[in-house]
Structures are given as structure tokens and as C-alpha cells.
Design a protein around this nucleic acid. Sequence first.
DNA 1: GTCTATATGTAGATAGAC
DNA 2: GTCTATCTACATATAGAC
Lengths: 216, 216
Amino acid sequence: MTDDTAPTRRRAPSARSLATRARIFDAAECLFAERGFDGASLRDIAAAAGTTAGLVGFHGGAKRDMFRAVIARRAEALGALRLAALDAHLAKGADLRGVLGCCLGPIVDKAANGGPQWRAYARLMATVSADPRWRDVSKAYFDPVSARFITEIARLFPTAPRSAVAQAYVFTISACLALCTARWRADALSGAPIPGSGLSSLLNFCEGGMRRALAG
Amino acid sequence: MTDDTAPTRRRAPSARSLATRARIFDAAECLFAERGFDGASLRDIAAAAGTTAGLVGFHGGAKRDMFRAVIARRAEALGALRLAALDAHLAKGADLRGVLGCCLGPIVDKAANGGPQWRAYARLMATVSADPRWRDVSKAYFDPVSARFITEIARLFPTAPRSAVAQAYVFTISACLALCTARWRADALSGAPIPGSGLSSLLNFCEGGMRRALAG
DNA sequence: GTCTATATGTAGATAGAC
DNA sequence: GTCTATCTACATATAGAC
């Protein structure tokens, strides 16, 4: 596949360069999540990564492109995790709660136990899913997996129109991302911190909601 | 209440000034909603309002204060609408779907039929509810009404802990704001635009979700 | 291929004119 | 009380050094 005769062949990146790049992407992930795309400056990101603003531009390209790249970096791994869980589940029959568990479980788990980078990534997913400015990013990185889950859920509610299933799926994802990123809100409203990961109450809510909204 | 002898008494604002101020706040509402707090510059807002950047500063104060004022401007009216509906409903008994209708109906209605300013405001509500940077704004303008609804819902599920009710409420509001602001997402996922206001499918989803999550 | 110094535009805020 | 001209600082992007 390589073509040594090509005059444009590039040198492989050094280990040092790769490490710098990783630090920059980690910092960008956290700061975009905390302050939003416009609120996080390349300088802030550089400082958090321990480098300079120019280097951020070099490794990440234009700011908008870097944001896309940050989303892309984990999208495939997360999507694969969710789809693998789905396939494993479907192999032994299919029930709504199980499918929802495959859909939401990996997200909730990574956000809760995957460390600060995954926590930041969950917040970015919420941003991208809610903001029409990033519509193309949703479309490229999240919609394919979503479409698969919608299809499987639709199979469980043969009489429901696909538009209703899609609507219920959006409600579901929105509740899931609220759990991952806005826990402080529920804590504040309840007066006391809420125990556990919240996955089971999320699954209860979404399962009950879908049954009520989609049942023939 | 007025004190004509006070040496610091101020002149009443002119009609022209009030009109300018209203245009500035309308423009800020739309642009903060579209581009986020950091993405919308005071100059953009000035241009949209047909004035100058300096005037925006004069009428709105510091940018952060102006954002707060924009939220405050409609918060009271909307909260009053929701609470009035709730009180009217409670007077003739109480059922979950009715309470949820009072909670979500006014928001969905204003976002769908209240014109571009209310549509923008719904998006701002979603931003504020999701972003810990605006936690104090949520707390001041939205939490009191939320607490009231949570209390009424909790009354319908006497065995559920308040923390579980608060969690379910957050899921509910999150689905509601997704309906108001991320319709394009459901449309894209379903392949066809979704008919109707979506209020009844939202109510179905949240009612079913709450029953499943909170039932003894 | 990797990194730095700097150009160019625009941000938010305000002193002072009307 | 109302509005404008302008100030300082920082944003992103890139030309060119290593």
C-alpha cells in the first residue's frame, strides 16, 4: 500500500509529537466541554496542555476542525461498544429494556467511571446533540448508530410509525445526557445528592416512556 | 413611594430609549440562543438591533449581566403561567398527566406558537439548564417553580423518595426542551418531518416514564 | 516534520460629548 | 439621561525559522 517512490511521502510523526498532540486533544476535550466552543480559546487549551497557542493550531488545524476531530476521536469506540452490546443482546432474543441498556449503558458507564476525559466527552455529546450549528457532526458521528437503535426499537413496536420512534429516541438520549452531565441539577432540586449511577432509574424512565408512547 | 426631594432622583427613560432597549434585548435573546453566550458578540447584537455596540453596553450593562437580564425578562411570566395552570388543575383533583400538562404545556406552546423570541427563549432555557456555569441563574429563576412541581408530583407517588422524583423531573424537562429545540434531530433520524406539536407524545413519554420509575 | 514569532482582526468596556 | 468615539487586550491564523 505504501509507495516509496512518491515524492510527497511524509516522515512519520515522532513519539514526542504524538504525545504533545494527545495532550492537546485531551485539553481541548475538557475545555470545549467546560466552556463551550467559543468560550475556550486556543491559548487556554495550549496552557492546559503545557504548550503554546501556535502548536495547538499546528496539531489541531483550524479551531472548528479541531472540535470535529475531538468528537471523532471517541465516537467510533463508543459506537462500537454500543453496537457490540446490541448484537450480543439480540443474539439471545430482544426485549426493550435490554436494547435500551445496550444503547445507554455504555454512555452512562463511561461518563461515570471512565475518568475526566470521558466525562468531558459526554458533555460534548450533549452540546453537539442540542446545537444545530453542529448538525453535520451529529450526522457524521452519531446518527448512524442512532439509526440502528431506532430500527431495533421500531421492531419491538410494529404498529408505531418510525417518526414516533425517532421522537421517543431523542427524548431517551436527552434524558441520558442529562443524567451524565446535569446531575448537579437533580441534586440541587432534591436537596440531597442522588445515590448510585442512576442507570437503572434512567432505564426505568425510558422504558416506561417508550412503552406508553409507542404501544399500539 | 416616589421622593421628589431626593437629590439623586433620576429622569424617567424616554419612549425612544425604552424602544431601543427592547430591540436590544430581543436581539440579545435571539443571538445568545443561536450562538451561545460567548459566540454572540455585543457588536453582533447591536447590528441585529439596529444600534451600536456602545449602546448595547449602556442598556444591558456588562455582557454577563445582560444575559441574566434576558433570562429574567420572561422567567416570571412563564413561571406564573405554569403555576396558574397547576393551581387551576389541582382545584379539580390531581392526576399525573394533568400535572405534567401544566408543567410542560406552557413551555411547548410558547416555543411552538409564541414567535421567534419565545423560540429563542426555549433554547436559552435549555442552555441554562444544562450548563453549570449558569447554575446561579437556574437557581434564581427556574428552581422555585421546579420545586413546586416536584412537590406536587411527589404527592402522587407517596412511596418514592424525593431524590427519585427530582431525577425523573430532570429527565422530563430535558425531554421537553429537546422537543422544543432539537426537533431537527428527530426529523433527521426519522427521515420525515414529525407532525403536530409533539406535546401529546411528550406527555405520553414522561407520564409512562414517571409511572415506571416512581411507582411503588 | 515540528515549532515559534507575529500579523491582522475583533472582542468588551468606558471616558467623555451631547 | 442618552449616546459615540476610542482604548486596551486578546482572539485566530500563518509565514517562516529550525
